[in-house]
Amino acid sequence: MEFRKNIETLLNDFLETRKDLFLIDLKFSASDDITVILDGDNGVSVQDCLDASRAIEFNMDREEHDFSLQVMSAGLSEPLSIPRQYQKNIGREIEVLLNDSSEIEGELAKVDEEKITLILRYRKPKDIGKGKVDVVEEKEISYTEIKKALVVIKF
């Protein structure tokens, strides 16, 4: 248990020096394979991953405790999980799978500690007459309602 605490402390100390980076996940396997997933306000470079890895590895004694370490960035295919990740994606299209299994796609407009706000754009039939009308509406979604949220990748 002390080994894990040491890793967490070293990682947190590194992140204190790099306020633009933040932790998404820290995993320990039974065989002490450590996986660190980072994200950043301006993305994560290979150098950022190397710096984080060195901050941990150079301060641990492999003779005392053998481990493997993998530091990576959260990829575009990874779901958004914390408000800071949502914040950095304001203005992008995201697809949200809700707990009731419904899906909503829209532009991420606002983020706070309790919810996100999407701008939904769609066409609906006119109330009177034939044809359709463009609709733009805002929808607030609480984090507790979100099962999974992904950035929509457009080419």
Rank of each mutant, 00 (worst) to 15 (best):
V36D: 01
K27P: 08
S29P: 12
F67N: 07
L76Q: 00
A55G: 02
D32M: 12
D61F: 01
C49V: 04
L50K: 14
Q47T: 12
R62E: 15
D51G: 09
S53N: 11
G75S: 15
F58V: 01
I37A: 03
D61S: 03
R54L: 04
H65Y: 09
R54M: 03
Q70M: 09
I34M: 01
A55W: 04
A30G: 02
S31C: 02
Q70G: 05
F58Y: 11
N42I: 04
A74F: 00
L38N: 12
S73H: 12
D61P: 04
V44F: 11
Q70H: 14
L76R: 00
V44T: 15
S53K: 08
D41L: 08
M60E: 15
L26N: 13
L69N: 01
L50G: 00
V36S: 00
L69R: 00
F67H: 08
F67Y: 15
M60K: 13
L50N: 14
F28Q: 13
R54T: 10
G40D: 03
A30H: 05
Q47R: 11
D51F: 04
D48C: 06
F58P: 00
V44Y: 13
F28R: 08
I34E: 00
L26V: 07
L69E: 08
S73C: 13
G75T: 11
C49E: 09
V36M: 00
T35A: 04
I24L: 10
L23A: 01
L50H: 13
Q70D: 15
Q70I: 05
S53Q: 11
C49H: 10
D39P: 10
V44G: 15
Q47S: 09
V71A: 05
L26W: 08
L76E: 05
S45H: 06
F28W: 12
M72F: 02
L69D: 05
V44Q: 14
G75W: 11
S45T: 15
C49Q: 09
E64R: 07
G40Q: 05
K27H: 07
V44P: 15
L50W: 08
L76S: 04
E64S: 11
L23H: 00
L76P: 08
Q70P: 02
T35Y: 02
A74V: 02
K27Q: 13
A30Q: 03
S53E: 13
G43T: 14
D32V: 08
D61W: 06
D33T: 12
